[in-house]
């Protein structure tokens, strides 16, 4: 029973970080900052999945959502910067 309350407090903290990062991702004008912020949202979402007893989903989200997605965003960003210069 006590564990549940601790988990809830952790979830509220993680959730507020996620929301702040999401707003940063949308309002910041630098594309690289926006991409990193979206990656952080995914990473903390995977922690939240783990707290909600979904380890399978947490593994997938950590590997694909925050790892590979962020990477292909940076490939595209690099290419666009190179073509702009």
């Amino acid at each position: 029973m006590n564990n549940e309350i601790i988990y809830s407090v952790i979830a509220i903290g993680i959730g507020s970080i996620m929301l702040i990062m999401a707003v940063i991702a949308i309002l910041n004008n630098k594309l690289s900052v926006a991409i990193i912020a979206a990656g952080v949202v995914s990473l903390f979402a995977s922690v939240l999945f783990l707290l909600m007893s979904a380890p399978d989903v947490a593994m997938t989200e950590a590997a694909i959502g925050s790892g590979l997605s962020t990477l292909i965003f940076f490939y595209v960003l690099n290419k666009i910067k190179r073509q702009n210069a």
């Binding site: 380890p55 399978d56 593994m59 997938t60 590997a63 694909i64 790892g67 590979l68």
Partner: peptide
């Protein structure tokens, strides 16, 4: 916990 999708993502990493 784990399976084909997670393992595939790890191999891709």
């Amino acid at each position: 916990p784990g399976g084909g999708f997670q393992g595939g993502a790890i191999i891709a990493s």
